[in-house]
Design a binder for these strands. Structure first.
Length: 283
DNA sequence: GACCAGGACCATT
DNA sequence: AATGGTCATGGT
C-alpha cells in the first residue's frame, strides 16, 4: 500500500488504542492483539494466533478504500487543503468499533491526545478483558463493553482520571446496556438523525457526535470541528477573523463536498503537526 | 504559574 | 441568539 501512511493514520487523533514500539504499532482491534509494520510499501500484520481470515483488520484499516478517488472529490481550487494533502498523503480514516469510538470521544473533551490515551488505557486495564499476547509482549486489554462500564460507580470511573466526564460515560454505557439506545440502528439513519440520537447522551454534543459518525460509522460528510479544525478554518478561509462555531460548520458543510470528513482529517493533522514542528524549531 | 487541551452544559444577558 | 463560567486533570 504505497498510499497508506500507517504512522499518520494511527497517530492522528482518531484512535487512541495504538502504541509504537520501534517501527511497529501494537494495539487491540475487536478484542484481538495485533502488531502492524509498514515495510516496502506493504502493511505487515501479526496476531497472537494464526488468522485464516484477516477481514476484521482490513475493514478496520479500510485497506480497500481507493484514496485517490476520495482525494479527487476535494474542492480543486483550495490551496490550503491541497497543501494539507501534500503534507501527509496516505493519511486514512479508520473504521472503528462505534462503542469504543463513542466512549473514547466522550472522554476527549478538553483533553490532549496523550491524556485521552492515558484515560482509555486505564479504563481498559481496569475494566476490560485481558487479551492473549505473544510471549514477551506487554499485557493488553480489550475495550470494556457497555455492560462492563455500566455496573461501575462514578467514583470508580473517576479513578481513571476522567474527572467530570465520568457521569457522561456512565450515562452512555447505561443507555446502551439498558437497551434505551441501540448503536446498531444508527448506521442506517441519515446523518442529522444519527447525530440527534447520539446527542441524547449527556456530554455528547455536535462535535463528539460527528467524531463517532465519521470514525465509527463512516459517514463521509461528518465534519467534527474541534479547537484545531476551528483554528485551521479561521486561518485558511476567514483570514484569521473571529468566526463562531455555527458559522464555521455552515462553511464546512457547503465547501468541502462529499468527502468532507477526509478533508477535515487532513486539515486537523496538517495544522497540528505544523504547530508541533514550530515549537520544536523554537518559535 | 499561566495557559491550553479533538467540549458540553447551564445561567445570565 | 450570544456570551461567560464551570467542570478535572495534566502537558507544555
Amino acid at each position: 500500500m504505497h498510499d497508506y501512511d500507517l504512522d499518520a493514520t494511527l497517530n492522528c487523533g482518531q484512535a487512541f488504542n495504538w502504541r509504537r514500539d520501534g517501527d511497529a504499532w501494537r494495539g487491540i482491534v475487536g478484542g484481538r492483539w495485533v502488531e502492524l509494520h509498514s515495510r516496502a510499501g506493504k502493511i505487515i500484520a501479526r496476531a497472537e494466533t494464526p488468522q485464516p481470515d484477516w477481514s476484521w483488520l482490513e475493514e478496520y484499516l479500510q485497506i480497500h478504500v481507493p484514496l485517490e478517488t476520495i482525494l479527487a472529490e476535494f474542492p480543486t481550487d483550495d490551496a490550503s487543503l491541497n497543501q494539507a494533502v501534500e503534507a501527509c498523503r496516505g493519511l486514512r480514516l479508520l473504521k472503528q468499533d462505534p462503542w469504543e469510538c463513542l466512549a473514547s470521544f466522550i472522554l476527549s473533551s478538553t483533553k490532549q491526545i496523550v491524556q485521552i490515551r492515558q484515560i482509555t488505557g486505564l479504563l481498559r486495564s481496569r475494566f476490560g478483558e485481558q487479551a492473549s499476547v505473544p510471549i514477551g509482549c506487554a499485557e493488553a486489554f480489550a475495550f470494556p463493553r457497555p455492560e462492563q462500564i455500566a455496573e461501575r460507580t462514578e467514583a470508580e470511573l473517576r479513578e481513571c482520571k476522567m474527572g467530570f466526564r465520568a457521569p457522561y460515560l456512565l450515562d452512555a454505557s447505561r443507555k446502551i446496556a439498558g437497551g434505551e439506545l441501540d448503536l446498531n440502528r444508527i448506521a442506517g439513519l441519515p446523518l442529522v438523525e444519527a447525530q440527534e440520537v447520539l446527542m441524547q447522551i449527556k456530554g455528547v454534543g455536535e462535535k463528539i457526535a460527528e467524531c463517532v459518525l465519521l470514525y465509527g460509522y463512516g459517514f463521509p460528510t461528518a465534519f467534527p470541528v474541534d479547537v484545531w479544525v476551528a483554528r485551521a478554518l479561521r486561518e485558511f478561509y476567514f483570514r484569521g477573523r473571529k468566526v463562531d462555531l455555527p458559522k464555521l460548520r455552515r462553511f464546512a458543510s457547503s465547501h468541502f463536498g462529499s468527502q468532507a470528513g477526509y478533508a477535515q482529517q487532513y486539515l486537523f493533522h496538517f495544522i497540528r503537526t505544523r504547530r508541533i514542528q514550530d515549537k520544536e524549531s523554537g518559535k
